[in-house]
Computed example of a mutant assay.
Amino acid sequence: MPTIRFSILVFLFLYQVTFSQSVEISGKVDSKIEVENIHVINKTAQVFTITNNKGEFKISASLNDTIIFSSIQHQPKTVVVDKNMVLFKAIKIALDEQVNELDEVIVGRVLTGNLLSDIKNVKGDAPINFYDVGIPGYTGKPATQSERRLNEATTGAGFIPLNPILNAISGRTKMLKNRVKLEEREALMQSIKGRLSKDFFMSNPLDEALKMDFFYFCADDENFIKYCKNETDFKILIFLKHKYKQYMENLKLNGQ
């Protein structure tokens, strides 16, 4: 009897150790649409990753951890890690497409989607553009007001090139350059906030009143443009995670 009891205790101990430890789980996401760059967030352990172009990912997890799968194209899905996932260190998840249905509104003529057919069915004259009257035009990205002012200050905007000299002496050119940089940071920050804030704050909780202040804190970093402009969501999330730790430390030092 003592031997049996000892064996049971050893078994229970090993069982507890096995399922309490964090393991690396390999997973795969299946979907009828794009499976790359889906956010995989372990809300319990506060770690995250994203899927590759095959929908594959790896993430650390323990028994009963909550893992959230989300992307703009898919319906969010929450999974609780069970014993089989820990034992086999594998998980397979099927995601459904996010469908945003709008009330049907028909205004004017019904278009078929066939460009040649729809052009014939639309009444009215086509608008005149600069090509019709032989005037050269610009078809690139429209410049912001600050960018137009900076161009005028540095090139003279086609007039006698005295403006660049006067503006350089007065400091106006430097001021306009700083304004353009600030607008670039603001636009990038707002883009990241709109795209990633929901997923980021799932695993990095922050009071609602402080969230906007946090993103301005990130944008003030001298490396913000370097690490966030034209980078993948995964790299941006790593940067945000790093700034989150700094932000929380600042809050503690200020007694908040």
Rank of each mutant, 00 (worst) to 15 (best):
F217W: 02
K211M: 09
K241N: 15
K32T: 11
R109Y: 00
Q21N: 12
V180P: 06
N121M: 13
V40K: 03
L95H: 06
K229M: 05
E231F: 08
N167W: 03
I165H: 09
C228Q: 08
V105T: 10
S26Q: 13
I119Q: 11
R109V: 13
S20V: 03
Q246R: 12
K77S: 04
D207A: 14
E101T: 13
F13L: 15
D125C: 01
L111T: 10
K243W: 04
F13G: 14
Q190T: 05
I59H: 05
E208C: 00
I106E: 04
S203D: 02
N129R: 12
L253T: 10
K226C: 00
S71W: 09
V79R: 03
K83A: 12
F224I: 04
G255N: 08
L176S: 02
L102G: 00
G134D: 04
R109L: 09
I128E: 10
V35T: 15
S26W: 08
F217T: 01
E104V: 14
V133E: 05
F69M: 07
K174S: 13
L116V: 13
T112N: 02
L176Y: 08
E101A: 12
I67C: 05
K123L: 11
I91N: 04
E249G: 01
A143H: 08
S170Y: 07
E222V: 13
A187C: 00
N114C: 00
I50M: 13
D199R: 03
L240A: 07
T44D: 02
K226E: 14
K252C: 00
L9G: 04
S197E: 13
N42Y: 07
P76E: 09
D125H: 10
S60L: 12
N163D: 09
M1R: 10
L240S: 09
F6M: 10
